[in-house]
Amino acid sequence: MSRRPYARPITSEWIFRHPRYIRYMVREFSCLFIGGWTLLMVWGFKALSEGPAAWAAFLELLQTPASIVFHLLTLAFAAYHSVTWFNLTPKALPVQLGEEFLPDRVISGAHFAAWAAVSAGLLYFAGAF
């Protein structure tokens, strides 16, 4: 038998082979910030349960430059994740009315609209306006 199929090694080089893979990895990477922010919130709850002094210290921590930078980054990553995710929704949730499918932008548009509405509602309850 002279066959000897050659299996090429898989290295992490693929990430940089095409912008689509970089965009994908950035989307995946965003979870680190979102996860970190979630842990921060858990810490905040803990501080709240420990009394006014702990809570005040926590609030002070939130106002440090490092925390502000972290929040801005998290916001950017969360926004990136959400936007790319909503752009993909037409693939996952096609809607057929009669013979035709709703155009992709209607489906992703509906998601963006819902996102905006929920965000506005939250901001309202938070007293932003």
Binding site: E28, L88, A92, L93, P94
Partner: peptide, 26 residues
Amino acid sequence: CSFVGACSEVCPEHVDPAGAIQQVKI
């Protein structure tokens, strides 16, 4: 599938396998 979406981008027949996979997940 972690929804890279590359399959649909390279498909020469515009089959959109990524869409199919997400629909299967749902």
